[in-house]
Amino acid sequence: MATVELTTENFDEVVGGSDIVLVDFWAEWCGPCRAFGPTYEAASNKHDDLVFGKVDTEAQQELAATFGIRSIPTLMIVREGVVLFSQPGALPGNALDSLIEQAREVNMEEVHAKVAEAQAQQG
C-alpha cells in the first residue's frame, strides 16, 4: 500500500478511521528524512493491512505543532486513537518491523482502561 499524505484536513479521518496508523513527520530538505523514506515505503508495502501516512512538516506546520514535533524525521504509531509510540530518528528496516509487531501485540483493552482511569482522575 502506498503512503497517504496527511494534512490538517484529512488527519482525523484517516487516523481515526484506521486500526493502526504509522505517521512519518518529515521535510524535503531533511537528509535523514529522505534516507528513511525508502525504508518507510518498503514497510508500507510489506504491512499492507496498516495505514502509513506522511506529514510534510513544512506544508503542515500546524499539524506538526499539534504533536509537538521538534525533530525530524519523527515516527508516530497510533492504534485505536491512542499514540503508542512517538520518537524522532530514522529507523533501520528490521527495527521498524519489530516496532510494528510490538504495536500489533499491545493489549488495547488495557490501554483504553488506563486512559479512561487517567482521564477520570483529571476530571
Rank of each mutant, 00 (worst) to 15 (best):
S18E: 04
F67Q: 00
G81W: 13
Q87N: 15
G37F: 13
L84K: 04
N107F: 10
F25R: 10
G37S: 14
G31C: 10
A118Q: 13
F67A: 01
S44D: 05
G16M: 01
K54N: 02
A43V: 05
T66A: 14
D49A: 07
T8H: 09
R104W: 05
A35Q: 15
E58D: 15
V4T: 14
G93L: 13
A42K: 14
E80W: 03
F52R: 02
G68K: 09
E28W: 05
T57G: 00
A120L: 13
L75T: 13
E41T: 13
A42D: 12
S86R: 15
Q119G: 12
R104L: 10
E105N: 15
R70E: 06
I100V: 11
Q122N: 09
A90V: 13
L96Q: 10
R34L: 12
E80D: 15
L99S: 03
D97P: 05
A43H: 10
H47T: 11
T3G: 11
I72E: 07
F25I: 10
L99Y: 09
G37Y: 09
A116D: 14
D48K: 08
F25D: 05
R34E: 04
V4G: 08
E109H: 08
W29I: 03
N94P: 08
R34D: 10
V115D: 11
T3S: 13
I100E: 09
P73I: 07
G53L: 01
Q122V: 15
S98H: 13
I69P: 09
W29P: 01
F85H: 15
V4D: 07
V111G: 02
D12R: 11
L63A: 00
K54P: 04
G31H: 12
W26P: 09
D12L: 09
S18G: 00
I20A: 03
A103F: 03
S71P: 07
N10T: 08
V111R: 11
K54I: 09
Q61V: 12
S86E: 14
V23R: 06
E109C: 09
D19H: 01
